[in-house]
C-alpha cells in the first residue's frame, strides 16, 4: 500500500484512476473503474421496457442494483444503491425516454477505501458509454479528516481511514460544480465540513478531466 500520499504537497492528488469502457458485451454500456486499489464494474441497460409496477408514464425510471463482493445485499448496500440512484437521476434527462427503465448494475470487485465515490464514478462512466442523455457528468470524491493532526486527506485508502475522525463523500456536477450528493460519517465542525467540501470541489476537476480524456481516447473509433 502506498503511504507516500501523506506528504503535504500531494494533498490535492487523488489515487491513480484506471478505467476500461465497454468491457462487457451484453449491457448497452459498461465501465470498469479502479481508484487506487478500489475497483468496481458497472453495466447499464437502457432505455429498456419498464416493468408495469415501476413504469412512470412521463419519465424513465432509474433502477440500481449493487452487489457486494461476498454475501447477499445488506442494508448498507441498499443505502449505496439509493445514493447511486438519486445521484444518477439528477444527471440523466429522464423525460427523454418516458415509460422506460434505465437499469444500473454495479458489482464491487475490491474495497480499499472510497467505495461509494468509486461506484458513483463508475456508474457515470457507464452512463456516458451507453449514450444515455445526461444534463451533466458527475464526479464523486472521498476524503477524511485525520484524528490527531486534523489534516484533510483526499481519497484515502483503507489504512489511512483507520485514523479517520470523519469521512466525507461528495459528488459534484460538471457544469456549476454544485453538490449533488453528500455522505458523511463521524464528528466534525461546520467549518471543517465546508473546508473539506471546498477541497473536494477542487479535486473534482481532476476527475472531469479524466472522463474527457477517456472519451477522447475512444472517440476516434466513431
Amino acid at each position: 500500500m502506498d503511504m507516500s500520499e501523506e506528504t503535504p504537497q500531494s494533498e490535492y492528488i487523488l489515487r491513480p484512476m484506471n478505467c476500461e469502457l465497454n468491457q462487457l458485451s451484453m449491457p448497452d454500456g459498461s465501465a470498469m473503474l479502479m481508484q487506487g486499489n478500489t475497483a468496481v464494474i458497472a453495466g447499464i441497460y437502457g432505455p429498456v421496457e419498464a416493468k408495469l409496477q415501476k413504469m412512470i408514464y412521463d419519465k424513465a425510471s432509474v433502477e440500481v442494483s449493487y452487489s457486494p463482493i461476498k454475501g447477499p445485499t445488506k442494508v448498507d448496500d441498499r443505502m449505496t444503491e439509493m445514493y447511486i440512484k438519486e445521484t444518477c437521476e439528477a444527471a440523466i434527462i429522464v423525460t427523454f425516454h418516458p415509460a422506460t427503465a434505465i437499469c444500473i448494475n454495479v458489482q464491487e470487485l475490491e474495497d480499499s477505501g472510497g467505495m461509494l465515490a468509486c461506484t458513483i464514478n463508475a456508474a457515470c462512466l457507464a452512463l456516458i458509454n451507453a449514450g444515455i442523455p445526461m444534463k451533466f457528468t458527475i464526479a464523486a470524491i472521498n476524503c477524511m479528516i485525520q484524528k490527531d493532526s486534523e489534516d484533510i486527506i483526499l481519497d484515502p485508502d483503507n489504512i489511512q481511514l483507520q485514523e479517520a475522525k470523519a469521512e466525507f463523500t461528495f459528488a459534484f456536477d460538471s457544469m456549476d460544480k454544485n453538490v449533488i450528493c453528500c455522505y458523511t460519517t463521524g464528528c466534525f465542525t461546520e467549518t471543517e465540513f465546508l473546508k473539506t467540501m471546498d477541497r473536494c470541489k477542487q479535486a473534482s476537476q481532476y476527475v472531469f478531466d479524466f472522463y474527457r480524456n477517456l472519451v477522447k481516447k475512444y472517440a476516434n473509433v466513431i
Partner: peptide, 26 residues
C-alpha cells in the same frame, strides 16, 4: 448544450449533431 459524449459535427448548411457510440436503439 450537449447531452451525449462524442464528437461534435456539422453538415452544411446548418445541421449540428453529436456523433456518439451507442448500442441501444432508439
Amino acid at each position: 448544450y450537449a447531452y451525449k459524449a462524442g464528437v461534435l459535427k456539422k453538415t452544411e448548411p446548418a445541421v449540428y449533431y453529436v456523433d456518439s457510440y451507442q448500442k441501444r436503439y432508439v
